[in-house]
Amino acid sequence: MPVRVQAEPFDFGKECAGFGQGGSSTGAVVAFLGRVRDDSGSLVRMEIEHYPGMTEKAIGAIAAEASRRWCLNDVLVVHRHGKLTPGEAIMMVATAARHRVAAFEAAEFLMDYLKSRAPFWKKEIAADGAAWVSAIAEDEQALDRW
């Protein structure tokens, strides 16, 4: 179950091209890419801190739960940490299943849990100062649907 936590950039296209190729029972692949968004127009960079050790364990447990619930043929999570600039890829998830409903749902489940159960913290560095990104209630509530 590939889970990668890394400072280095990743190539989304290459990751997708190589994903879910094992076996012929996969009829659906869903991939999601998260990027650094600049709402204010003044974001200089984003710094992502994480908890080495716990991060990998927490994501592994989330991915294992997704695989169990939706019977996934393959799952991939890549999440970066360190300094990122606006527009850069932060993270991706990919899921492979027999049918699309399972692949879509599992990808959403992974995203919902990664947002509030994987130990990452984002800090936005803007021209006029720096601030930690606050967790939002909707992200916590999103877990209730699962």
Binding site: K57, M91, M111, L114, F120, K122, V133, S134, A135
Partner: peptide, 29 residues
């Protein structure tokens, strides 16, 4: 709070625990 890298409650016992971590709500993804 996390105890030995697992999320826990503030009422949780520390017996046998080697590592305690405190942090704000997570903002991954």
């Amino acid at each position: 709070v996390a105890l030995d890298q697992e999320l826990a409650d503030f009422s949780a016992p520390l017996k046998g625990i080697r590592e305690v971590a405190f942090f704000p709500p997570m903002t991954g993804g």
